[in-house]
Amino acid sequence: MVLMADNTKKIAKDKVFNEEFLPQIDALYNFAYHLTYSEEDANDLVQEAYMKAYRFIDNYEVGTNAKAWLFRILKNAFINDYRKKTKQPTKVDYEEIVNYHNEEDTNFSSYDDLRTEMFDKMMGDEVTIAINSLPVDFRTVILLCDIEGFTYEEISKIINVPIGTVRSRLFRSRNMLKEKLKEYAAEYGYSDKRSKE
């Protein structure tokens, strides 16, 4: 009897995983890639995020915002991974995702850039290089808002900062990006005349 109940529960969990979590994998991978700038690290990060998502699947409310929930798990995994590499003992508590849907975020932790030296050596599209050369806090909000289409409120919960901070980071990061892309964008017909105001 217990075995049957366990099996039914597993089938239900697997259904949520297949139908709500896995469809987000490309978006998660792109976010991971822009955080780590390494295909191998992005793969590891996505795998880790999905393992944790499955482990904590009981905390997820079926039919709610799976994408934001998964992004938050991945972002926390990235911070933990980075701290491990820099030998800092503190860790993000994954239990915090229990309260994802109702909590009020009041504090935030800042973390430094990852692999800045690698970005300079990277060849590829100018826009991608420009985004990846932003400090990670600023890069993250651009990716979440302008590339993934999350709202201020969703971003606030994913990166655990107040909405006002999300807005100011977005403003600053877009300005940094415009500065970096000024010449390149002009080639493609975009010009920013703000400085004339």
């Binding site: 490309d26 792109n30 590829g124 826009v127 590339i147 892309l181 975009y190 010009s191 703000r194």
Partner: peptide, 17 residues
């Protein structure tokens, strides 16, 4: 200008599968 810059960035950022 603001709208075209957003579209410019979004259209040129590398997406992977």
């Amino acid at each position: 200008k603001e709208k075209s810059f957003r579209e410019f960035v979004k259209s040129r950022v590398q997406r992977r599968t």
